[in-house]
Write a protein that binds this DNA or RNA. Structure first.
Lengths: 227, 227, 227, 227
DNA sequence: TATGAATGAGCCTTCATTCAT
DNA sequence: AATGAATGAAGGCTCATTCAT
């Protein structure tokens, strides 16, 4: 364990939380969760760093030991959420093989992450949209990674002949992400408390149908099995 | 045409602004439009009153001759939009008689007002949601008037036997408004430039179908039972 | 009347009221009186030029046709009051001869001017004291003239042998003015509505007694008569 | 002496300021003193918070760690002064017994507090009078406490038979306070630097004489009749 | 002369960020 | 690592003053 090359993802994650996550007392997730709650309740601009600190039960200065700036709090929320979605997406992929099932797994986890914490959903779907700068910056990095995950699954499906090959997998990935993102926004804005995750299936069915390879007579969609 | 008595609506509109609207020189709509653009571009909190003033080509202090505060700019955008939507909705109603056509007319105009100015849509669907205070305050006044307009059409339809009478017209009006509002938010958040107005028909078809008066006895809607 | 050399005082006064005091509609005193009321009620700094204009029944811009600035309003109140006090003092002097009577006449008129208008008293005794700059500037001009009037009377009394010559008439004038000024301030600040003018006699008695020439045996105070 | 329980008054005073008054570093009195000097020199309205901060040697924002607003600075000056006057008055009362001596002690301390700091006197007697709001608000609280102190002494004197009982102690307290307040204002406005404290005796003599219990029957105060 | 809409400099106040302890 | 007092830049708003009509 000591000499193995470190997982790049873990390195990135560790770098985010300044140095030692020594014992149990890591205040990084504590403050981040406080920020989610405070931002969701009052909005990013109406919230003060001192509010977040108070909610987290730390001093105002302590926030700056874990985050570069107030903006960094927002960025970290975005980043952590996307990172988790990627991780959960990957984990979900491990259990299924058929391309359409893999897409469904990603979509379900995506909406699960969102619907797990309504405050997070508010921040992620609304507050994050304010700064075009943020959006553009993060779209290029984290979001790119997430889209890459989806694109990979689609490309696999195309390679396996399950999906039509005459559509760019990047474009198809964006369509799926866009649809899921809009589901999430609707759910978050809606006063009703319906099941968000259930919509994953509908979205995937719809898109998968659009992606389906034209049936070749007498040959059903092949199911690939991973070891 | 020159000496005709003035349109009462225009008189009301003029009274809203400063006294002598010296022909072209009324700065009220000028500043409001500038605010819509600036707020849409940078977000309400990232915008400065000075930015709005510069965009409108007036001095910073001038903004305060027409609006009580920066918040009032936001509130005025909301108010003007709802007022226009009501006026357009009423105008649309004048041309059709059948209840379902009347609903469709309102829905189309609603989405037309939104899609006419994308900046306005951004401000109206996103920035306005920030301040719970604003929302609550205006929900009670302007929004109430708009919902009243819809409710009236539905109640008419019920009275005429076109709509089922066993649903509160207030509730039905909220459902329609909620659906249109979500269409508008989706369109505004979406990167795609599809026709928003076209969705009005889909929404109205759906809801009108749900509102349709039950067919004559002997041919009841089949009730599916879930286990 | 046309060719006589103009009275310098009138010239100054006329210059103050920009050009023609054409007919009855001179707004200069109107605005000044409005300023006295407004400043007395809310204080100089809490009053706005627009308040004064409204009280005077004119537009805000009109104030600037008669006064250089807001400060000039305060200065003009000071100046007009002192000018009137001088004029009234001179008029009073015309009726009496004995030095002590002449001092008493000045003192009475001084306090009369003050007590005639309580708002004026408030402005004159309190608001005017705020700006040291103003005080110093005006002390050198208008107040100097008023003190000169008093000093003249005292010097006359000294020349006539009625007052001791071993005290500077300037110093004695300041003492008298200072005493009267403090009476005025007390009266203005006091919640009681006693007669301010009556205090003139007390003050003059006191100071005149201090100024009295040492009695030379067998020779009573001479009474001078002016033609 | 080192381990004695702390003086309750000091505890209260410390609580008034920010928590840990790290020995010499308490900026509350520092800023307050700076405000007294700046306000006295330029007047409340001509002074900027930044001026006060600079005079106190702190940053502008620091003022707001100790005071709610610029107005609060003025209010705090008032409050601290009255509080000190009450404390000094009480201390003075501890040394004397005879009612008239007790009144004289209070009066002397009152004028002592004022004359100790001329800047304070200027602010207290002039600037504070501007805002009627302030006056009314604090009259009801702090000033009420101070008047209560005086009233108590007078009531004691009445109970002891030293003062006539046919005058309301509240009214008598107001008369004494009013007289002292006017002495203070005169002294502050006056260019002369006479002893303000000495006037306490004169005022108290006068009022105490008016409060004196009527002599025993058979030797009544002569009543003069005016025609 | 009179108007009042327009201007823009100025100031109070907030709050993200720093740093001595 | 943690604190929270201190900082000072930034921005909303006011209002004295100007000027085109």
């Amino acid at each position: 364990m000591a000499s193995r090359p470190p997982d790049p993802d873990l390195v990135v994650a560790a770098r985010r939380r300044r140095k030692t996550a020594t014992a149990a007392g890591d205040k990084h997730p504590l403050i981040l969760q406080a920020a989610i709650h405070v931002f969701a309740r009052h909005g990013f601009f109406n919230s003060q760093v001192a509010d977040v600190a108070r909610e987290a039960g730390v001093a105002a200065g302590t926030v700056y030991l874990y985050f570069k700036s107030k903006d960094d709090l927002l960025a970290s929320i975005f980043e952590r959420t996307v990172r988790e979605a990627i991780a959960e997406g990957r984990a979900a992929l491990a259990t299924v093989d058929a391309p359409i099932d893999r897409l469904r797994a990603i979509a379900r986890r995506h909406l699960e992450v969102i619907s797990r914490d309504r405050d997070l959903a508010v921040v992620f779907q609304v507050e994050l949209r304010h700064s075009t700068k943020h959006m553009e910056e993060f779209s290029a990095t984290m979001l790119g990674a997430y889209l890459g995950l989806i694109r990979g699954v689609i490309a696999e499906g195309q390679a396996a002949g399950a999906f039509r090959a005459d559509i760019s997998p990047t474009m198809a990935a964006k369509v799926l992400f866009g649809a899921l993102d809009e589901m999430a926004t609707n759910w978050m804005l809606s006063r009703r408390r319906y099941s968000l995750v259930a919509e994953a299936d509908v979205v995937v069915d719809l898109i998968a149908r659009g992606l389906a390879a034209p049936p070749r007579p007498g040959k059903s969609t092949p199911r690939r099995r991973t070891p």
